[in-house]
Design a protein around this nucleic acid. Structure first.
Length: 443
RNA sequence: CGGGGUGUAAUAUAUUGGUAGUAUACAUGCUUUGGGAGCAUGCGGGCUGGGUUCGAUUCCCAGCACCCCGACCA
């Protein structure tokens, strides 16, 4: 991708109305655009990051469920049926009533904050026989919650991206087995996205539905709103709200645990028959008897929140720093050319053509030749060196190849690793080889 | 939802009860190119409503928006 084709203009100054690191850096770098409190649009590079995060989620979820997309808008009757229309006070309700319009429809809708009300009627169509079970569906979608207090950039929004998966089972044993599989898939994802070492599964209260199984996935992060207690010996952690019980159950003292600030990036919990009952979701068993499906589980990951957490954890004073698994590009060529026909420009162009490959698309498998190449952003703008070097640091692309007149006189270019600041000078003809070994060092 | 703070140009800000200034960005021209270049010219501004006043961007009140703390977080 040529930088000149990207539609953006970075900002030198932080926005006056933001304090959160993720909000400031993502705004300055033009990854996101603020529409209102807790509501952001995603600009080209921000969308690339979000998509990469969500594709990593897909990769894991495809091992335990089928992807679908449900509607954002729901008829309010579905929510009435479960009694949650008035119960959930973060619910956005929409009305089609418009006195000035010829369309006299006055239907009322819900902008879904979660999709139990949608998935259960869908599942009911297909889960007719005991032979159909178990099964699971997931989606990655925009959610709407009228948070009383949206805050901290992408960390707590009123409109945000989330993966939600729902599973249906006939026995407790089968449900628990699946629940553990989901945990594994979740931790695999957190490892891949660059948060493996700082993500902990914490037991938590079951919310409004049940006091049974419920777990949160907490990333240790100063910007987080939650407090977790980590048992360093066992590697297990507890949520503040269940601390007392867990201390008792595990025969521990508070002093044995480390208190840490954390941000909840995922949760999984037991719904039992809370929703299958509401919709009278019945299946036929082997004896030709009808029963309500007894076990349903719900599993969420906040993909846009993860983007914010990554910035909070890895961003530095110069700007964003992305793990290579989700960076908008693998490499940025910072081309300090004077004009579009000088030597620096020509060398940059050759390097770009040598290294660049188009973005991977599903199923995300390139050939061997393909795997030796990279997604490259070439800063081909005719701007001063300082602007380009600072922008490159701000974007946080893992590797920079800096090509300028001085080094080129000795046939050298620089490779800079963004996350360590390490700079290596290499001969132009050795560039491809050096890149391959340095790429391994990028986190 | 309770408490606190802030609303001036696309962005960041200054000043003032009487003609609103600077920087960035943007446009044009020339000079520049290894860490946010220089000169010149140009474009562009007081959240909304009410009150006080001869006169309000400034003072007062209300609303709205945004940020922070708390409550909340299905």
């Amino acid at each position: 991708m040529l930088h000149s084709k990207l539609f953006l203009k970075t900002k030198k100054e932080a926005p006056s109305d933001e304090v959160a690191k993720n909000a400031i850096l993502l705004d300055r770098a033009n990854f996101i655009y603020k529409e209102m409190a807790g509501v952001y649009s995603y600009l080209p590079m921000g969308l690339k990051v979000l998509n990469k995060i969500e594709n990593l989620i897909r990769k894991q979820m495809d091992t335990i469920g089928n992807e679908i997309t449900m509607s954002s808008l729901a008829p309010k009757e579905l929510w009435e049926k479960t009694g949650r229309l008035e119960e959930v006070d973060v619910l956005f309700k929409a009305s089609a009533a418009n006195e000035n319009s010829k369309n006299k429809s006055s239907n009322e809708y819900v902008l879904n904050s979660t999709h139990e009300e949608l998935i259960t009627p869908i599942a009911l169509e297909f889960g007719k026989s005991y032979k159909d079970f178990p099964f699971a569906y997931y989606q990655i979608q925009t959610k709407f919650r009228n948070e009383p207090r949206a805050k901290s950039g992408l960390l707590r929004g009123r409109e945000f991206r989330m993966k939600d998966l729902y599973s249906f089972h006939l026995t407790q044993e089968d449900f628990e087995d699946y629940y553990e599989k989901a945990k594994v898939a979740y931790m695999n994802f957190f490892k891949e996205v660059g948060l493996g070492e700082s993500t902990f599964i914490t037991s938590a209260s079951g919310g409004d539905f049940t006091d049974k199984l419920s777990h949160e996935f907490q990333v240790v992060c100063d910007a987080g709103e939650d407090i977790i207690y980590l048992n360093k010996n066992s590697g297990t952690a507890y949520n503040k709200e269940v601390l007392e019980i867990e201390l008792k159950n595990n025969n521990l003292k508070v002093e044995d645990l480390e208190e840490l600030k954390a941000c909840e990036v995922g949760n999984i919990f037991t719904l039992e028959d809370r929703f299958t009952k509401s919709f009278n979701f019945q299946y036929t068993n082997v004896d030709n008897q009808k029963n309500v499906v007894p076990h349903m589980g719900c599993y969420g990951i906040g993909s846009s929140r993860i983007m914010g957490v990554l910035v909070e954890k890895f961003g530095d004073e110069k700007g964003l720093v992305w793990p290579k698994a989700v960076a908008p590009f693998d490499i940025e060529i910072v081309s300090l050319h004077k004009e579009k026909n000088d030597k620096v420009y020509e060398v940059s162009k050759n390097v770009y053509q040598m290294l660049n490959r188009p973005p991977l698309t599903p199923p995300y498998q390139g050939g061997e030749e393909y795997s030796k190449k990279y997604e490259v952003l070439w800063d081909d703008r005719e701007l001063s060196a300082g602007v380009k070097l600072n922008d490159a640091d701000l974007y946080g692309i893992p590797m920079q190849i800096i090509i300028g007149t001085k080094n080129l006189e000795e046939n050298l270019v620089e490779i800079k690793l963004r996350h360590t600041g390490e700079v290596v000078k290499v001969k132009v003809e050795d560039l491809e080889k050096e890149l391959m070994s340095l790429w391994q060092k990028v986190f």
